[in-house]
Write a protein that binds this DNA or RNA. Structure first.
Lengths: 186, 186
DNA sequence: AGCATATGCCAACGCCTGTTGACTTTCGCA
DNA sequence: TGCGAAAGTCAACAGGCGTTGGCATATGCT
């Protein structure tokens, strides 16, 4: 009885929900379509998750899983961080869900803020970085912009980049946002 | 008869449409709400613009209006470009409309691609920049990411930046994307 | 003034949405 | 084998949507 019958249905619903929310955004992803993908009745979605909003909340759970940065050499911080973010991005489509929905859904926006400010800032504090909030914000602009162009807009030159090329291009940017003295020039 | 009565209604509809599309995104911005904002009947919107899609197409017209970059000193390119983009952003909310809608609306996404690849790339070509497409794409990631965090997500540390501070932070990034040799470090 | 045309309003349509409640089937345990 | 609960099905609801066509009003020209 460790695995009940209903658990698999719940999981199927959640997987379908993530796919639809990620592909269509919050409003265009309908309960009916999600249910059809999971091959069950729309009413089951309501029984298991209560409402579309609660289903979304469950589908948008995310942890950026930052590694410990305090023992990384200062001059490799950018590369390490960028590589982690990009790889985290591609192994888990939840961030694509958030990106696609945060634009019109306040709950998604709040969760995104929580990830990028609430999780990045304290990690930077622990790594003894000054002005951790501003730096977290700046890094968010580059990381989210990259994801937006690569996965949502699908700009050809950005889609074409390999992970290594992307790391090589973005690494120095992230590094500078992380370590450069306040408003600086080049 | 240079200015007919209907022209003002058309303009009122377009202004209301821009506001709603920019605030709510494509699907949540309803014809009825736009018409209410413009203080006219929903049927008028159809009469003047034919359909919601065509209204959107009219509301999302945008030109990035890049200045001529060929006579700007190489070491000021980043600052100049960033300042232009940010100021262009804030004087015209059409880009916010695009940003809010490109996520779920293919027409908006296509227009955004046209702006950032179709307008940036040839300008870089004229300024004798090598690999203009990749560089345009990279600059798009940083510019759009900044706008996304500042105007859509409203991340506090990014919202709090003044224009000058933003230029100081992003300028070197854009400059590097514009001039650094291919995949580089530092 | 009188008429044609431009402008605007109203009511309704067909469709799709999230959500609900009642009903049927399946399963696990005594 | 029975019985109760869990799991799944079905049809319908109320409301919002884009869109349409018919009708009233205002406008401008002769």
């Amino acid at each position: 009885m460790a695995e009940k019958k209903s658990d698999r249905t719940r999981a199927a619903i959640l997987a379908a929900a993530r796919e639809r929310f990620g592909a269509d955004g919050y409003e265009r992803a309908t309960i009916r379509a999600i249910a059809a993908d999971a091959a069950i009745d729309p009413a089951m979605v309501m029984r298991y998750y209560g409402s579309k909003e609660k289903l979304f909340a469950a589908a948008a759970e995310f942890d950026v899983r930052l590694p410990d940065l305090s023992d990384v050499p200062r001059d490799q911080l950018g590369q390490v961080l960028v590589r982690h973010l990009i790889e985290r991005w591609e192994e888990d489509d939840t961030l694509q869900v958030l990106l696609r929905t945060a634009v019109t859904n306040e709950a998604a926006a709040e969760r995104m803020r929580q990830v990028f400010i609430g999780q990045l800032t304290p990690a930077f504090e622990r790594a003894a970085v000054d002005q951790p909030a501003v730096r977290a914000g700046l890094i968010a602009t580059q990381a989210l912009g990259f994801a937006f162009c690569r996965y949502i807009l699908e700009l050809e030159p950005i889609v074409a980049l390999s992970t290594d090329e992307a790391v090589a291009w973005l690494g120095p940017t992230i590094a500078r946002y992380l370590t450069a003295p306040s408003p600086s020039q080049a």
